[in-house]
Design a protein around this nucleic acid. Sequence first.
DNA 1: TAGTGGTCTAGACCACAAA
DNA 2: TTGTGGTCTAGACCACTAA
Lengths: 241, 241
Amino acid sequence: MIDPTSKVPLYHQVYETLRGGILRGEWEPGALLPAEPELISQYKVSRITIRQALDLLSGEGLIIRQRGRGTFVAAPSLEQAMVRIVSFTQDMEQRGLRASTEVLAADRIPAPPHIAQKLNVEPGEELVYLERLRLADGTPLAIEEAHLLHRFCPGLLKANLQNQSLRNHLDRKYGIRWSRAKQVIRAIQAAPEIARHLEVPTGDPLLHIERVSYSQQNVPVEFLRVYYRGDRYSLFNELQA
Amino acid sequence: MIDPTSKVPLYHQVYETLRGGILRGEWEPGALLPAEPELISQYKVSRITIRQALDLLSGEGLIIRQRGRGTFVAAPSLEQAMVRIVSFTQDMEQRGLRASTEVLAADRIPAPPHIAQKLNVEPGEELVYLERLRLADGTPLAIEEAHLLHRFCPGLLKANLQNQSLRNHLDRKYGIRWSRAKQVIRAIQAAPEIARHLEVPTGDPLLHIERVSYSQQNVPVEFLRVYYRGDRYSLFNELQA
DNA sequence: TAGTGGTCTAGACCACAAA
DNA sequence: TTGTGGTCTAGACCACTAA
């Protein structure tokens, strides 16, 4: 499973392997991971290398290590929505809600200047514009306006995005996976159009997030605007000294 | 400087020492830290131990390591406000604004049930209540309502908190330092009283943060509510895949 | 007592940056 | 070429947990 001749560091290969297993759900939350000596013989690397991989997982909050007991898979937490790129569906699951989606608009548009700038392309570059209403337990919770660089995902509009996650589709059809994203969080008033879709009065407070997502090649590919109903959505995080 | 007989791990002592130096500003942002071999001879520990300390600092974003060049002190970023416990003054500095404060209320009150619960004490326990208007470049930006457990900071109300940071005062007089904090971020409407102080219309959107801060003994000591003007304040952060 | 993760060491080779 | 940080090893002792 681990390739010692690869240019990817061994500890990172171990990390990716374990991380994949955890995210794919091969171990339930709370499950005991193999002990360090077992991982050593399984992957044929030294203890320090194994521990380097576990350190990464622990730093991400994916595992919990307890001296004398073992290493456990952590339960996904609400705080992950502020640290990790999480899909709407995953986010809702963690909150104990059922997610559904309604596509409001799907078009090809030329990039307006301010969006072109965030995506680091020329104004007028062709974008895929996707506007979706996100519901939690059947009630409107958020509106997402995605702007994707068309040249990275031609033909995306032909896909059925009502029932299929955009994230999976980008991965499977175009090989696009996010590596990281930067976002800005604000409180704003609901514009009439948005308010109507979210079924709140115009002017109600919304939690607004603007996010630029970068592909694994570290290229900005998506500019996303999300409007969450202020009365139904909040963010959690933990700060360090 | 490093005590090998201490029960605190060596790497953590090195980490604390370097971290303190960086936070106290002994190195300017962008400054070159001593190279690893130098730290080894300086602290008389092995390279792995030094690197363990540097890994922590790097994970916090306090340093940037570049192969072949060296290790540099990172410039404080706006994103730190979402990862680290940052004072209002520090936050404003990073945004290029001048911070000032007006004390609106300072009292001793019995803990209301919902606050008592967050602080893990009985309702009625005595609290120090401190309401402050925070200004940026002379204009109202936020209102902070702090609730502190009185028994940890008796006599706090006698202090001059107009010109002195609460954080420094708690540290110097009571030995209270925050180790971590949990917070919830929401978008809400400005209530009339808050709106008046912030000089915005009632009902305007505010970014609202509720935070419980834990002392180094891991005891919740402060419950804080902050109301930021939505038009003048936003949060930044970076997400990982 | 046996097994777990936590800490620490000395030493090695590598890739990258700068002079 | 020199010095930097990046990776990796084998081996050791310790503290904690659970049986």
